[in-house]
C-alpha cells in the first residue's frame, strides 16, 4: 500500500510552474533522497508535501487521505519539518527548542508538563545530546543544532521527517555522523524525505532516490540503480564517474577535474617558508 502519494501535483509561483505534474509514491520506512540542480523544485516539493504550499493541481495523500483535509496539529503529529540549520535571533536553550515539538499534542492554552519535558529529554538522549540541554541553541555547533532540530521532530512524535538539505553547512565529520544518525533512525521505522546536493550521500543511506529537473521527475527508484553516470550527467550536465570501493561502497568523482588536477604544480613558496608539515604533525 502506498504511504505517501503525490498525484499529478502542479505548483507554481505566479505563472512559472515550479513543479509540473509530479507523480510519486513513497513507502513507509523509506529513506528518500531528492536530488536535483538549484531551482529544480526540491524545496518546493517538500513544502507541498508539508502542506505549506497548496498545489494548484493534484493531490498529496498520506495513507490514502488527502493532506489538505488533515488539520495542522494532526499532520504535525505525523510529519515533522527539519529545516536547514538556521541562526535564530533569540538564544533559547536547547531543551526549550525541543519542547516546541510537544506543541501539536497540547490544547490551545497550555503549559508544557513534566511529561513533555521528559519526552524532550528522551528525544535528546536518543540522539546522545542530552548533555547539551541547558546550552543556548545559538551557541552549539552546526551539527548539534541540526541534531536538536531532529530531536524536536522526535519529540513531536512524528514518524515522517522532512529535511531540507540536512548536511548543508556542516563540516565533513558532522555530515557523516548526521547521515549515520539518519540511517539508525530509519532502522527504527522512521521515514525520511530529504533533499541533498550530494549524490554519494543519496546512494549511501537512501532506499529511494528521486531526481528532479525543471520541476519534473527525471528518475525515481532504488538508490543504487537510479544514481548512475548517465542520470547524473542528465541531472547536472557534468561528467561524473562512479566507482565502487572494496566492499562495494560507491563514490562519485567529477571526471573533468582530472585535467585540472594534473595541471597542479607544487607551490614554490611552500617549500621555502614552511617546514615539512608532516614532520610538524609527527
Amino acid at each position: 500500500m502506498s504511504f505517501i502519494c503525490m498525484d499529478h501535483v502542479t505548483y507554481g509561483y505566479g505563472n512559472t510552474p515550479v513543479l509540473n505534474d509530479i507523480n510519486l509514491c513513497l513507502g513507509k520506512g523509506e529513506v528518500v533522497s531528492l536530488l536535483g540542480p538549484n531551482g529544480s523544485g526540491k524545496t518546493t516539493l517538500l513544502k507541498v508535501l508539508l502542506g505549506l504550499c497548496r498545489p494548484q493541481n493534484g493531490e498529496v495523500r498520506l495513507e490514502g487521505r488527502p493532506v489538505r483535509q488533515i488539520n495542522a496539529k494532526a499532520l504535525a503529529r505525523r510529519m515533522a519539518y527539519v529545516p536547514q540549520t538556521h541562526k535564530i535571533s533569540f538564544a533559547y536553550r536547547v531543551i526549550d527548542v525541543v519542547l516546541m515539538g510537544r506543541m501539536p499534542h497540547k490544547p490551545f492554552f497550555f503549559r508544557y508538563s513534566t511529561q513533555d519535558e521528559a519526552q524532550a529529554l528522551k528525544a535528546l538522549e536518543q540522539l546522545s545530546i542530552a548533555h547539551l540541554r541547558n546550552r543556548p541553541y545559538t551557541e552549539v555547533s552546526g551539527g548539534e543544532r541540526q541534531l536538536t532540530l531532529i530531536a524536536r521532530a522526535l519529540a513531536q512524535g512524528a514518524d515522517i521527517l522532512v529535511m531540507d538539505e540536512p548536511v548543508s553547512g556542516l563540516d565533513y565529520g558532522n555530515q557523516i555522523r548526521l547521515l549515520a544518525q539518519i540511517a539508525t533512525l530509519a532502522d527504527h521505522g522512521y521515514t525520511f524525505i530529504k533533499t541533498t546536493h550530494f549524490p554519494e550521500h543519496a546512494v549511501w543511506i537512501s532506499d529511494r532516490v528521486v531526481m528532479l529537473k525543471g520541476g519534473k521527475v527525471l528518475a525515481n527508484g532504488h538508490a543504487p540503480m537510479v544514481v548512475n553516470e548517465e542520470n547524473l550527467y542528465l541531472l547536472y550536465n557534468t561528467d561524473i564517474g562512479m566507482a565502487d570501493l572494496d566492499e562495494g561502497l560507491r563514490v562519485c568523482v567529477p571526471r573533468n577535474m582530472l585535467g585540472h588536477f594534473k595541471k597542479r604544480k607544487p607551490v614554490d613558496s611552500f617549500n621555502y617558508f614552511t617546514p615539512n608539515p608532516l614532520k610538524q604533525v609527527i
Binding site: A76, I88, Y92, M100, G101
Partner: peptide
Amino acid sequence: NILSMGDEEARCLGVN
C-alpha cells in the same frame, strides 16, 4: 517562542 522560529516552522508545528 514558536513564532520566533519563523512562519514555516511554526506552521509545521501545527500552529495557526
